[in-house]
Amino acid sequence: DGETSPTTSMAELDHLVQVISKSHLETCQYLREELQQMSWQNFLQDEVESYQSKPREVMWQLCAVKITEAIQYVVEFAKRIDGFMDLCQNDQIVLLKAGSLEVVFVRMCRVFDSQNNTVYFDGKFAGPEVFKALGCDDLITSVFDFAKSMCSLHLSEDELALFSAFILLSADRTWLQEKLQVEKLQQKTQLALQHLLQKNQREDGVLNKLRFKVSALRSLCSRHTEKLSAFRAVYPDIVRTHFPPLYKELFG
């Protein structure tokens, strides 16, 4: 808005930061304090082996359930973002269909232990070897590498919240009907993120590093879709009858 004075603009950005951070904290699934109480407990060797010896379809189903749970929190996050619910229903669905898993990957850095290369999963911290039965070692490695590199940015909860909103409001998703509306929301979110990074005295490079994450996220999600297609080709009935309906809606 060209007529907004810089002062009002700053206040508006501060307000946006506040609202989006609050939405993030209300819907983040795990509070950092809760995770600390779990004392970063890792799976024992026999527990790791038990996951590894599960049939491929059982492990896929378990992961689909966990992803779906995490996505439900992202949907709640989206609903609380200023302006999201004012978009047409088609665009709300398009943005969540394309962006919800990306936000799950972004949020993963909150439950990731960089030192041990483990992620909180099914009650304890799991290394990549826990997911061996899925038969997607390359994708799992990439997801862990992504979480590690997100962690290395040491984003605050506020910064993570704004970046998640920025990802969700991507105006270049296919099938958007009111692209301009989404563009405006995304630009505003980006300004708020820039404003926050400056306020937090982060070095200039952080925003550029985050821009690179956008393409990394898209690649992770398209590879997830490819792996699911390959799995479905072998186990169509398992997906049809045992996978969470929301997961099938989003990725089917």
């Binding site: 439900q72 949907v75 709640e76 609903k79 609380r80 619910m85 229903q89 088609n90 709300q92 669905i93 398009v94 969540l96 269909k97 099938w175 309906p245 929301l246 809606e249 989003l250």
Partner: peptide, 17 residues
């Protein structure tokens, strides 16, 4: 799209808790 995403649509319709 709404027809193909009934659960997501329902989640969006539910009031925020």
């Amino acid at each position: 799209l709404k027809e193909k995403h009934k659960i997501l649509h329902q989640l969006l319709q539910n009031s925020t808790s």
